[in-house]
């Protein structure tokens, strides 16, 4: 899975900035996408392209259980979020709803990948290739259940 990286070099990107509370009443996915990341980066909607990835620090998606957060990112075209760690509900919503892949990375990828770099994520090898810089990093493997739900295409397709 290849794409370009939009990097936010900070920890604790919370759901209130991913999709501000005033939009919780909105359930039209396309409309939610127009407000993605509005609390942090009002230009996000104009710059994000189909297939992009977000790269960030620790505890991405902390705060609310609003599924609007992965929905807004996914319907903006974001296919994966790479972060040092994820808040549990964001992680779970991303996988169970099959909106995007939450990829846990190590410090080398966090510091090695720059804004705009093209990367190739290979979840079968737990590997991320930085095509711009010709570097390779390890991603943390998915736990067994998460791997199976991703493979099934979301919780409703998963047979326990």
């Amino acid at each position: 899975m290849k794409g370009n990286v939009i990097k936010y070099e900070r920890d604790n990107i919370d759901t209130d900035v991913i999709i501000p509370g005033q939009y919780l009443k909105v359930h039209d996915y396309a409309e939610l996408a127009t407000h993605a990341m509005e609390g942090l980066d009002p230009d996000f909607h104009s710059k994000v392209k189909e297939g992009d990835f977000i790269l960030s620090g620790k505890n991405f998606g902390c705060g609310s259980s609003r599924e609007h957060a992965p929905i807004a990112l996914s319907h903006s075209g974001v296919k994966a979020v790479l972060a040092l760690s994820f808040a549990r509900i964001f992680y779970r919503n991303s996988v169970d709803g099959a909106f995007l892949l939450p990829i846990e990375i190590e410090e080398d990828a966090y510091h090695g990948i720059s804004q705009g770099d093209e990367i190739d994520i290979d979840i079968s090898k737990n590997e991320i290739k930085n095509l711009t810089k010709n570097q390779t990093y390890k991603m943390k493997p998915f736990s067994e259940i998460i791997g199976k739900i991703i493979e099934a295409g979301g919780l409703f397709n998963y047979k326990p």
Binding site: E67, N93, D96, G154, L155
Partner: peptide, 16 residues
């Protein structure tokens, strides 16, 4: 939980 998980619970009565 989020919407997908709650929908799953409402239909199946259980969740992982």
């Amino acid at each position: 939980l989020g919407h997908t998980d709650i929908a799953y619970v409402l239909l199946n009565g259980q969740i992982w």
